[in-house]
């Protein structure tokens, strides 16, 4: 479904991604784990069109999408839930969800999908008229995910959904990621919480200072000494 081939991404002079290749197959949950500053968010931003690769190709459903504007990529079925949620704070929960469906014109379908989001996250339904900036961190994460789902993505990019959340909420969020995946959405999940991520993923990549250093099935990585030492420490 998604094939990233040898991309290089820069911020001015800073070489943030070095010759990165990665693949996501339809129906999978693939996770990308790595420490702070490794380049995880940079990769997702490149996939969703916020950054342009200097070199290399990004193939999505056999189409080159690397360097295309973000709106073209959303239209093609890739939705990105950014790091730190980035909900539109003064707008209501409902307006945030409506913006998620910005490129759609099927009123009925949008209504139905909004009802589905409220079913998936009942708390959002209770807070639908509330400014999203007043939600708790976990609720904002749910809203950011619901907003992305409103675009009816085929591929969902999630950037550290567990960041700053209590273990119980993290567990819930991960259950929902699994559920969304089972309903047919392919997921690329970026995490520092390697344990949780590997527990729901099919396959995984490890990134260090802009380079992919390891890849394999989630099980292989869970058992790898290298991963245990660096990312599953203390367990």
């Amino acid at each position: 479904m998604l094939k990233v081939d040898n991309i290089d991404v820069f911020y001015g002079n800073i070489h943030a991604l070095k010759d990165v290749s990665l693949e996501v197959n339809e129906g999978e949950i693939v996770t990308l784990i790595g420490a702070n500053g490794a380049g995880k968010s940079t990769l997702l931003k490149t996939l969703s069109g916020l950054l342009k690769p200097k070199k290399g190709v990004v193939l999505y459903q056999s189409q080159q999408i690397g360097g295309k504007p973000a709106q073209a990529i959303v239209k093609n079925g890739i939705s990105h839930v950014p790091e730190g949620r980035r909900v539109f704070s003064t707008m209501s929960v409902e307006e945030n969800l409506e913006l998620g469906a910005y490129l759609r014109n099927d009123r009925e379908g949008i209504k139905k999908d909004m009802a589905n989001v409220y079913e998936l996250f009942p708390i959002l339904g209770e807070r639908r008229k509330q400014p999203s900036g007043t939600l708790s961190g976990g609720e904002q994460q749910m809203l950011a995910m619901g907003r992305a789902l409103m675009a009816k993505p085929k591929l969902l990019l999630l950037d550290e959904p567990s960041m700053g959340l209590a273990p119980l909420i993290v567990k819930k969020i991960f259950e929902i990621i699994k559920m969304v995946n089972e309903q047919g959405t392919t997921v690329l999940l970026v995490e520092q919480n390697a344990n949780m991520a590997l527990s729901i993923a099919n396959r995984a990549y490890v990134i260090e200072t802009g380079k992919i250093v390891l890849s394999g099935t989630a099980k292989e990585l869970q058992e790898s000494e290298q991963v245990k030492a660096a990312y599953l420490g203390g367990l």
Binding site: G49, A70, V74, S79, P82, V87, M91, L103, A151
Partner: peptide, 10 residues
């Protein structure tokens, strides 16, 4: 409110 997040909405 947030131009990059707006881009991600399309």
């Amino acid at each position: 409110l947030d131009p990059d997040a707006a881009r991600l909405m399309g």
